[in-house]
Structures are given as structure tokens and as C-alpha cells.
Design a binder for these strands. Structure first.
Lengths: 186, 186
DNA sequence: GAAGGCTGCGACAATGCGTCGCATCGCAGA
DNA sequence: TCTGCGATGCGACGCATTGTCGCAGCCTTC
């Protein structure tokens, strides 16, 4: 099915390198793509573009991109938002979808998968139609497990690292390091 | 705050041990809890109970519990479904929420966290705000979390340490050490 | 504007982990 | 019964991760 090339795509991402690469790839495919690297810039651009699709990173220099979802949808209720983050976790995925994102992907991701995410999720509420994701046959690694648990508790404490460390009975320094070291793979 | 004790909780779970433990814990807290261990049994029970809350495992002897979500919601649109699985993944989490589940948790969880999942997620749309945190409730420490997870996977592999280590993507030697060092302290 | 909490980060020692190696078992197939 | 093959327990060694302490910058709150 042909894409509607007149649709613009707004890329909200604070990593310049990644942002530039993605923009180029999208434009090469005929999309009118624009980039924003902060919450304020994103809202401003969204107001003028009223983009049909938004690629949203969750880590915008410390601020959570999550808060942008309701605001973007308010500006344009029909727009489809795909969350794309290097710090993926189940906790934030659940939040993102509840807030109205149509998909949640973990970096790295190739552009085709990204575009497909918009398409697949085009019609809201029809998830049942397509086969839901298969349940993995391997359980999570302990590392992954730890990461997910930390993210959940961190969210419960509204991002307060010190409080989270206390709740988890772990040293703040260690928590900091674990949170930082995540950009690493898998 | 008192729970509405008249609400029944339907636990859909194919692991008898886990199911029994959970049921007991729920009943001790005053909930009318029932268990089902297959898709058919779950639907049958749901029809007669019309439960307000459902705890849903994704691995029902090979079948994906995901397909139950729309059916349960059709039977009782007001019911709150919390997905609870030992094979968590972001993909299934996204699907579960899209299909209408209110929360998605990975399997070692304590009962308090589970019950909190029903409560916190009760009001849709306030996700970003974060829970007002009415309940202090300490989560499991990462150590305990890791221990529970390892035990689960170990049991799934019938005590085979090498296989468990492989499944958990961890070194066999390390697993051995963790298992040894355990019986001690909290 | 002082007090207190949160945060990022450097430094160093203690602990834990990954890895290799080896001897011992248990079990299925030749 | 012999023979692999895989599971297990464990010693040893070097590197990676943690626990701790400390400090400076930044917010809020009063």
C-alpha cells in the first residue's frame, strides 16, 4: 500500500547524530521530515506542522518525552506516535501505550521497521486482528530482569534516584551507575 | 482503605504451584478468588463470575493468554485485567495494553504490587502524574528479585543448573555460586 | 539566605564475576 | 560393557563491578 507522502513526520530526538541519520533516511523515502530536540521545540514545531506521524524519543536531556504524548494528541488527535528509546523498559512501554502511543520500539531499529510500526498500528483497537506478538520461549535474563524491576520502582518514585535506591535497598552510587551504563546493548 | 471485598478476582494461570500460592494470598486478604488454568476454563468461569479483576498469565500451555483479553472485556467491559507473565517482553506488553489490559507485570511479583497494579491503573489518563503514592509499600530488593527469578527458571528446567544458566544467559559458574551463597541471610 | 535533599562524579579498596581447567558422575547408544 | 556426552562441583586468577567516602552544584522549602 502506498504511503501518503504528503504526511509530515516529526522526529523528536536529542541525539543529533541519530536524528540526522533518521531524517535523511526518511526524506530519501519521500517523507517530509522535521526534527526537534527538546520538549519546547517539539511542541512549537508540532503546532505549525500538525504532523500525522511522530517519532518520539523518551530521553530528552533528562526530561521524559512521555509528557509530550498527551499534548501532541491534543494538538492533533489523529496523529500516530511511535515511541523509540534506547532505554526501553516494560514500565515505560505500558505508560506510553496507555497515554496513546501506537507503538513502542527499542533502539536500535531500522527505518523500515519504524515505518511499519506506523502502518501496523494505524487503526486503533484492531490489535486483535493481526496476530499479537508471540510469547517468547526464553525467560528474561537476570540482567534484563533487574533492569525492568529498577525501571518499575523508579517510576513508582517519580524518577527520584535516591528514593528508589533506598526502596531497593541498594546504594545510590550503584543505581546511578546501572542507569547510566544502560545505553550498552541488550 | 478497605477494598471492595465483594469483588471477585479470577486468576488465570497454568502453573498450579504459583496459582495455589497466589489464591491463598488473595483469599487471606479477603478477596473471593477463583482460578482457571486454560482458555476454555477461564471463559467459562468468567461467564459465571463476571469478575471485576483478572490476573492473566500469558503462557497457558502454549496458548497465548493475550487472546483472552478482548473476550474477557466483552463479557464484562468494566473488568480490570492485569497481565502477569514469566516470559515478559516489550512486544507482548504493548499488545496487552492495546487490547485493554490495565497493567503488565513480569513474574516475580509480590501480592501487594499486584493488588496495587489494579488500583493504580484504575483511573486511565493519569499515568504521567504518577501515583499519589498513597501506599508506602516497599518493593522487593533486586537481590530478592533475582533469587525468585532464578528459582522459577531453575524449577522450569527441573533443577538442571547448566540449562538454567543458558536460559538466563549467565555463566554456569556464577549461577552455582549464587545458589550456594543463598540459604544465608535475607 | 540558610537548611536539607537530590544529583553527578572521582577515587580506592573489597567483593564478585567470567573464564579455564580438571575430576567425577550418570545416562543413552553402540 | 564400553564409550561418549553432558551435568556438576570446585580451585585459581585477573578483570569488572560494588560499597563507601567525599565534594560541589542545584533545586525547594521555610
Amino acid at each position: 500500500m502506498a504511503n501518503d507522502m504528503s504526511d509530515s513526520i516529526l522526529v523528536i530526538e536529542d541525539d543529533d547524530t541519530f536524528s540526522a541519520t533518521l531524517l535523511r533516511a526518511l526524506k530519501r523515502r519521500g517523507y517530509a521530515a522535521e526534527a526537534a530536540k527538546s520538549v519546547a521545540a517539539a511542541l512549537s514545531l508540532a503546532r505549525s506542522l500538525l504532523p500525522a506521524r511522530v517519532v518520539l524519543d523518551l530521553n530528552l536531556d533528562g526530561a521524559s518525552g512521555l509528557v509530550l504524548i498527551p499534548q501532541l494528541l491534543e494538538l492533533n488527535p489523529g496523529c500516530r506516535i511511535v515511541v523509540l528509546t534506547g532505554y526501553a523498559s516494560i514500565a515505560t512501554a505500558v505508560d506510553a501505550i496507555k497515554l496513546g502511543a501506537v507503538q513502542y520500539l527499542a533502539k536500535p531499529v531500522d527505518v523500515d521497521t519504524l515505518l511499519q510500526a506506523f502502518g501496523d498500528a494505524a487503526a486503533p483497537g484492531d490489535v486483535a486482528a493481526g496476530a499479537p506478538a508471540a510469547v517468547p520461549h526464553l525467560p528474561m535474563s537476570v540482567e534484563r530482569m533487574e533492569w525492568e524491576h529498577i525501571q518499575r520502582v523508579l517510576r513508582e518514585h517519580k524518577g527520584n534516584i535516591s528514593a528508589t535506591a533506598r526502596a531497593l535497598n541498594m546504594h545510590r552510587r550503584t543505581l546511578q551507575r546501572k542507569l547510566l551504563k544502560r545505553p550498552a546493548r541488550k
